[in-house]
């Protein structure tokens, strides 16, 4: 019943199936790219996937927490942009020290998450609407800070942006990649080895049951939005590291990419089932599509959006298929 493959030491659970499909697709696309395009199959291309999408990875991981509880967070892109703006503004206009700015910015992200989570849980506002208001507010505040792009000249930032960590002969990492991987590991540990993480899954499975089983539903749900706020903030900072600038127009539509990555990574939008590892694979898959289009050269960038849409469609149908047999008793 619960195994698609054989019973025994290696069991393939149904909830793993979607992640495996994503993984298989990722490998297949990468293999195809390596065969068709010279230079595609190099380590640096893989690393570049992480470098170019590090901020999305971090944001999508936060989104995974929220979606696992059965909610959604539309504010992630706007909160990321606001974080970057705030950071750039404090550094460049007010000349605050980096050591003060970074924690403050992360706190603002957490605060946004708390506010939205509080309203969602205690006032029973639909997550979609509450985080939509959060999105408007954060995006609007960006423009209150500055209508124009702010370049970051702070030496700490410019040095970070240029730092390369050699990995083998021709491959270089950036600190961003390490931060992204650390967040991934931390999120995995939190979700699978802490009571908070398990309560996140329990709420997504059945909030009513979670309450009756004595789990701290309010704390956990608000906590998930705080994690998402924190991740958005951090993602915004990583994006600022990446571009050494901040603008209210940055990361428009990031929330859609993040949601798409989470869904393609096998997490159910109804909550309760999914893995951050799947989300990471989803981000990689989106990145691989972009890389392939870049290597292809003649296909234009809008094919990315269409490809993401098609993938989203396939995975939603796949989930529907797996889901409908799941309810069978």
């Amino acid at each position: 019943m619960t195994t698609l493959g054989m019973r025994g030491p290696v069991r393939i659970r149904r909830e793993h199936a979607a992640v495996l499909v994503t993984f298989g697709l990722l490998v297949a696309m990468f293999a195809a790219g390596s065969i068709v395009y010279p230079g595609f199959g190099s380590g640096q291309v893989v690393v570049d996937l992480f470098i170019d999408n590090g901020f999305l990875l971090v944001i999508a991981i936060g989104m995974t927490f929220v979606i696992l509880t059965g909610g959604i967070d539309l504010s992630v892109g706007a909160v990321a942009a606001l974080s970057a703006m705030l950071c750039a503004f404090l550094l460049e206009q007010w000349h605050w020290p980096v050591a003060a700015v970074l924690p403050l910015v992360l706190l603002v992200g957490i605060g946004f998450g708390f506010g939205m989570g509080y309203v969602i849980h205690h006032f029973e506002i639909q997550p979609f609407i509450a985080t939509l208001a959060g999105m408007f507010l954060a995006r609007g505040l960006c423009f209150v800070i500055s209508i124009d792009q702010i370049s970051i000249t702070n030496p700490f930032f410019t040095e970070w942006a240029q730092t390369r960590i050699p990995l083998g002969e021709e491959t270089n990492l950036t600190p961003t990649v390490l931060i992204g991987l650390a967040v991934l590991a931390g999120a995995f540990w939190t979700l699978h080895y802490t009571r908070f993480g398990r309560a996140v899954y329990a709420i997504g499975g059945s909030a009513q049951s979670a309450l009756l089983m004595g789990l701290p539903v309010a704390r956990t749900r608000i906590g998930a939005y705080m994690v998402s706020g924190l991740c958005s903030s951090l993602g915004g900072l990583l994006f600022a590291f990446y571009t050494i600038s901040a603008s209210g127009l940055h990361e428009v539509g990031t929330e859609l990419d993040a949601i798409a990555a989470v869904v393609i990574g096998g997490t159910l939008l109804t909550g309760g089932s999914g893995y951050v590892v799947g989300t990471a694979l989803g981000v990689m898959l989106l990145g691989t599509i972009q890389t392939m289009l870049r290597f292809q050269g003649t296909l234009s960038s809008w094919w990315t959006r269409i490809a993401i849409g098609v993938l989203l469609l396939l995975f939603i149908l796949l989930q529907r298929l797996l889901g409908s047999s799941r309810t069978r008793r």
Binding site: E15, R198, A202, G205, S206, S209, M213, G272
Partner: peptide, 25 residues
Amino acid sequence: VNLCPNLTVAENVFIGREPSKAGAI
């Protein structure tokens, strides 16, 4: 049944009171 269908049988028995060591379940 007021349990979580998405979790394993074992976890449903212990959720909220998981045995843990150094913060890890």
